[in-house]
Simulated assay, not measured.
Amino acid sequence: MQNILLPVFYMPPVSWFSVFLDAEKEIVFEQFESFPKQTYRNRANIYGANGKLSLIIPINHNGKRETKDIEISYREDWRNLHWKSIKTAYQSSPYFEYYEDKFRKIFDLKEKFLLDFNLKGLEVIQQILKTEKAHSLNEEYIRNPDEINFREKFSAKNPSEFEMDEYYQTFSDKFGFLKDLSILDLVCNKGPESLVYIKKIKQLY
């Protein structure tokens, strides 16, 4: 059994779940890294009417750097804005109505810390996927960890390195298939088949 060191993301991309849900791997979440900007730690990509849309959680710039200490800013009503964007994007998808109430729970959360928000969001998503994958949190930052290091494997800026099949997306007639969006995109379009799809994704290790 190998250990994987994973960053904790906001409604993570599909590829992240292919690593997280690997039955052969033990998952350790990174909480002591210096918080990197412009990553999936506080953003999720969905498929909007005009193509890829990034939903970004604003953070308080209070000088704290470790991921576990990063605080969410509520100066703007971003939770309501994100939820409206999601409803607009997916209300005509095959399974949105079926999962709507469960996804809505994520946007009822009001956690002080980003890490806590993301972890509780993950609990909701695991309920939707009907999975119960265990995980632990690391206890210190190690530059060269013993675990397989996935801290920098998921880029919000560059195309995904993971290989995955195309599936129907609500606006794919306009812009084609957009690969490796948030798990929300997969679930709304594939529904109960999402888990089977995730397990077929070609791994990077």
Rank of each mutant, 00 (worst) to 15 (best):
R43Y: 03
F177C: 01
L81P: 03
K25R: 05
N45E: 07
A44P: 02
K130F: 07
D146S: 13
S160I: 09
F162I: 02
D116G: 11
V187D: 13
G121S: 12
N138C: 15
H135A: 03
V19R: 02
S136P: 03
P36F: 12
P12N: 14
F103V: 12
Y167P: 11
P7H: 00
Y168L: 05
M11T: 12
D173P: 09
E66W: 08
K68R: 06
E76G: 15
K120S: 10
L5D: 02
D69M: 14
A23Y: 00
V196C: 09
K130W: 13
V28I: 04
H82A: 00
I4Y: 00
I56V: 15
K110G: 08
I46L: 04
S93Q: 10
I201E: 01
E100V: 12
S54K: 01
L21D: 00
G176W: 12
D173A: 03
I57T: 05
G121W: 02
A156S: 14
L119P: 06
L184I: 04
N50G: 08
E24C: 05
L6N: 00
Q127S: 15
S54V: 07
K112L: 08
A49L: 14
A49C: 14
G63M: 04
E24N: 12
A156T: 14
R43H: 08
S182N: 02
E76I: 10
V14R: 02
D165G: 09
D108Y: 12
I56E: 02
Y141K: 07
I57R: 01
D101C: 15
L184P: 10
I72D: 03
I142P: 09
L119F: 09
Q127V: 09
I57N: 00
D108L: 14
N3T: 12
N144F: 15
L6I: 04
E161M: 13
F103T: 10
I148G: 03
V196Y: 01
E139W: 15
P159A: 01
D180R: 12
D22I: 00
Y168W: 02
C188K: 04
G121F: 09
E97S: 11
